[in-house]
């Protein structure tokens, strides 16, 4: 097993070297929108990761929250307080800090569910494409069926079922994991289908036959030789899926079946703000909304560029 890991490290390094010297790097520096998106994405990701250090307040610490400061408008408005740059929410939490922490949760859910989805989808795709036969038919039928439903609906259904199936006191505690699993389950099909068709194209090539002839075990052929050759499209799907996962998480939280208000993600914040929309407190939902769009848009732009860069046909 360790030898597999080692060679994977090496092939990763090789890939990295290829990326640096190759087309991708070149096209990146030539595409203003890619650079712009990368900068925005990096800034949002870094500020989310370092939220506890950057943010002026800790929204989860009840001692720092003063209900008297609830629903203050942003600092540049007449009634705003200069202590709170973007104002406060209904519980008196500093909105700027809450957004940073919320983005952190949104990204965590996004990355975690994309990684699980990717491993699941790529794994099933490899098996389906390499083994073929009945295994392939079964996996692809399930994929077909799932693909006919929108991902967000699948995530909502899985999340809803877990939610009612778990005892009440558990589900706030496990909400984070439930939502990650729900989004992960909703997203594996794209990976599986793409990987499967690439594997079917790869497995008839000479290097695979050579591997089979010298008696390498199937899993080594699959993991060491085929996998690196089918990862390109997976990277693209993964990037676009990250944006989608962030949006799905926000939507579920907005619908009230995602993360609870005690540990709000961006979607939960927008939901909280939505209740105060009619009483004129627009900032509680608008600023988290802007943060969400900027995050999703920058990741989407990156994915778009990556797709064009890796697919010369589209240029």
């Amino acid at each position: 097993m360790s030898s597999v890991k080692l060679t994977r490290m090496q092939s990763l390094k090789r890939n990295l070297a290829n990326i640096k010297n190759g087309d991708l790097w070149y096209s990146f520096w030539r595409s203003p929108s890619a650079i712009f998106a990368m900068v925005i994405a990096l800034v949002s990701i870094l500020s989310a990761v370092f939220a506890p250090i950057i943010s002026p307040y800790n929204p989860f610490d009840l001692a720092q929250v003063d209900l008297m400061d609830a629903s203050l408008p942003p600092s540049w408005m007449a009634e705003g307080s200069e202590n709170y740059f973007l104002g406060t929410d209904d519980q008196g939490r500093d909105l700027f800090s809450t957004i940073l922490h919320g983005a952190r949760l949104s990204l965590l859910v996004g990355f975690a569910s994309v990684i699980i989805s990717l491993v699941l989808g790529v794994g099933l795709g490899l098996i389906s494409g390499y083994v073929g036969g009945r295994t392939d038919v079964i996996i692809m039928r399930i994929a077909d069926v799932q693909l006919s439903f929108p991902a967000i609906l699948i995530a909502l259904l899985v999340d809803g079922i877990f939610r009612v199936a778990l005892p009440k006191d558990l589900h706030d505690l496990l909400a984070l994991y439930v939502i990650i699993v729900a989004i992960a389950i909703s997203g594996w099909v794209q990976y599986a289908r793409t990987v499967r068709s690439s594997v079917m194209a790869e497995k008839v090539k000479e290097y695979v036959q050579a591997g089979q002839v010298i008696g390498l075990p199937s899993f080594i052929i699959i993991l060491r030789h085929i996998l690196p050759n089918v990862m390109g499209p997976v990277l693209v799907i993964g990037t676009i899926h990250l944006a989608l996962a962030i949006i799905i998480e926000a939507t579920l939280s907005f619908l009230g079946v995602g993360l609870p208000p005690t540990t709000p993600s961006l979607g939960t914040l927008i939901r909280i703000g939505n209740e105060y929309l009619f009483s004129g407190e627009w900032w509680i939902s608008l600023f988290p909304g802007i943060a969400l769009v900027v995050l999703a848009l920058s990741v989407n732009l990156l994915g778009d560029w990556l797709r064009d860069a890796l697919n010369p046909k589209l240029r």
């Binding site: 944006a243 949006i247 926000a250 939507t251 907005f254 619908l255 927008i270 939505n274 929309l277 009619f278 004129g280 627009w282 939902s285 608008l286 909304g289 969400l292 769009v293 999703a296 848009l297 989407n300 732009l301 778009d304």
Partner: peptide, 21 residues
């Protein structure tokens, strides 16, 4: 592309904010 990145519920909230409120 912006439309794809803008979740449905946000579009709804924006429309409510502008035309409703």
């Amino acid at each position: 592309l912006i439309g794809v990145s803008l979740p449905t519920f946000l579009i709804g909230i924006l429309l409510i904010l502008v035309f409703g409120v």
